[in-house]
Design a binder for these strands. Sequence first.
DNA 1: CTTGCTTCTGTTAAATTTTAACAGCGATTT
DNA 2: AAATCGCTGTTAAAATTTAACAGAAGCAAG
Lengths: 270, 270
Amino acid sequence: MNPGERRQLILDRLEQEGTGVCSYETLAAALKVSSMTVRRDLEELIRLGTVIRTVGGVQRAQAPSYLYETALHSRLAVNRQEKRSIARLALGLIKPQQTLFIDGSSTCLELVRALAKEKLAITVVTNSALVCLELGKNRDITVVGIGGQYDANSLSYVGPQAEDWAKTLFIDAAFLGTKGFLPAKGTFESSLPTIRIKQIVAQRCGQLVLLADHTKFGQRALSQVLELAQIHTVITDDRVPRAELAALGKKIPRVLVAPASPGKGASHAA
Amino acid sequence: MNPGERRQLILDRLEQEGTGVCSYETLAAALKVSSMTVRRDLEELIRLGTVIRTVGGVQRAQAPSYLYETALHSRLAVNRQEKRSIARLALGLIKPQQTLFIDGSSTCLELVRALAKEKLAITVVTNSALVCLELGKNRDITVVGIGGQYDANSLSYVGPQAEDWAKTLFIDAAFLGTKGFLPAKGTFESSLPTIRIKQIVAQRCGQLVLLADHTKFGQRALSQVLELAQIHTVITDDRVPRAELAALGKKIPRVLVAPASPGKGASHAA
DNA sequence: CTTGCTTCTGTTAAATTTTAACAGCGATTT
DNA sequence: AAATCGCTGTTAAAATTTAACAGAAGCAAG
């Protein structure tokens, strides 16, 4: 039996094991080789990050983690510092007793994570399963999930049912992310199913807050979602050119600019 | 400085650290305590699954795992083998092109995990956010989430909106878990919000399949959910007394009994 | 067929880490 | 003031990890 074949068997074994944990000794016995051989087989898997070393054995990496291997996961990683910073400003706009809509974009997810730690009695409506899970930990927040067809790319609910539901909402403020933003035109999205939801929410909220880091500026995408006139507040970061911010400020009631490094000692992001 | 405060600092540190890894020595130096103290501080975090032990230190648990620290997480662990075995039988009942309802009970979650690996073109309706996430990985399965008020205990959607929606469904077969099952009466649940959903689903499905391991038998709970007559199939494990199974078999169209150890050699986990 | 080379495996011993037990310290209670 | 409790640091024993070595098996070339 090759090391390669064994490696496959090890993975199978870890999959079967409910806990995702296996000791070297267990594996050695199961594969009828010495524990040293098992260690050597696992080196590669450890290097790849497929499994994690523990004391006396290994553990399947990333338990049932729903984010991993999704597009959303990689989106979350880019410009994280800016997104956090933007989220912090957004947090400041939220008042107790409000009813908010928050979508499942990577920027909004940072807002949601911050929100989950706050003590704020609010109601949050969302079409993102991830937002529900994150906010569910917080007992002060009432979370309402819009159902519908589940879209594994955005981890959120879309489709006609979701749209019908969205049409019945009354929302104080909606926080939306975007794929692209042209300050002269509006926002753009490439994932069709989510577009309609955003448009409907935009029509049914008192105040629309767009969360868009500097990389979104000037980005066009498949289809336009929001008109500039629908946007009440734009929150972005300070890597957007001043001229562009100034121009935008004249067309939009409020533009907030988040500082890149918000006074925290952390100099380099993860 | 308290152990509790230190624990928080440790988490901050792990968050800052790009890799999410910290050695005991590093932490000990940073917190100005002995490495033994750091070890003891981390014990709790390890137990909770927030971090995982590695050799010489700890690592941030990959991604926020939404299951951890929830009641559902601990429920998933008990009688896992039986639940898997039951899930395997349930899988056999599912045919391509069917529309199913699956709830978010721990037993059904095992079914869902098995289902996620199959190549079956089916539609699954659920009120559980976790079921959506698990099944979302499988491109062959269309997943429809019932929205509503989000219940963090069951990780699922409940309340009047969810109920209204459930009333519009047409379902071939519904797979439901339960808190308790009296073979003479029916099923029982203690979490009120989920009860109505289950009752409505029961009325709107062609075939109701109850997944109940032996520990559910004889268990009563706050409120009755289903009448015995509503249940078409019961799947349980072979640790239910034979007499009880025989009696049940006379009242219910179909009773399936899953073997405790399905021929797998795995005797002890690591 | 043999030699030399490579790859893989198991054994061993040293280095390191983990565990468990103990004793000291300070705060709080009686 | 004495006793108790929770927390901390030190130490030695136990366990794990690492590194090094040597044997076995497969393969190519001579």
